[in-house]
């Protein structure tokens, strides 16, 4: 059956997608976007995570036809305004949060999903947001550091432009820690 959806901002039209075909297979095998990884294919490792309408979703447990008409974001769709690295991606590198890199695309997407709905997460909330994605290399510490730092920078930027939160909330959080 035909499938139309938005992938990383572009409209994708596929003429004939078998009924049960998984999103991960469409992304990797049909569209050649191999930034989305496979680690288990049973929904436990999180390597295949993508964003569907901004929600972190395991593409190995999602039928491709279920994303018809929706917005899908993969790691290939994450970048800064000028096409360079996003602030979050740069923070991952600055904090040493990338080792073998196999979990990295999914981690970045999980972090992005968190930061879009929560501008001021605690370390516990960050850990919870990435809990579905395994990493065998890093022990998660520097990943949490990178996400926390990005949240702080984004919050600062938002504050300056008068969007989002107040200075008071920020110092509350610092006391919490």
């Amino acid at each position: 059956m035909p499938l139309v959806f938005t992938l990383n901002g572009d409209e994708i039209r596929l003429d004939d997608i078998p009924d049960g075909m998984l999103l991960v297979d469409v992304l990797r095998d049909h569209l050649g976007l191999t930034g989305t990884k496979r680690g288990c294919e049973t929904g436990t490792c999180g390597m295949c995570s993508v964003l569907v309408d901004g929600v972190l979703t395991r593409s190995c447990r999602t039928k491709a036809i279920d994303v018809a008409g929706r917005l899908v974001t993969t790691i290939e769709g994450i970048h800064g305004p000028d096409g360079a690295l996003s602030d979050l991606q740069a923070a991952f590198l600055e904090h040493g949060a990338v080792q073998c890199g196999y979990c990295t695309p999914a981690m970045v997407l999980a972090a992005e999903a968190l930061l879009r709905r929560h501008s001021d997460p605690t370390r516990e909330q960050i850990r919870s947001a990435i809990n579905g994605i395994l990493c065998r290399c890093t022990g998660y510490m520097q990943i949490v550091d990178a996400i926390e730092a990005t949240a702080a920078v984004r919050a600062g930027r938002n504050r300056r432009t008068g969007q989002n939160r107040t200075a008071g909330r920020r110092s509350d959080r610092e006391q919490e820690r």
């Binding site: 191999t34 930034g35 290939e76 690295l85 590198l93 990338v98 073998c100 990295t104």
Partner: peptide, 8 residues
């Protein structure tokens, strides 16, 4: 290798 990995 960071840039290659962080971009997928």
């Amino acid at each position: 290798d960071g840039a290659d990995k962080i971009t997928g």
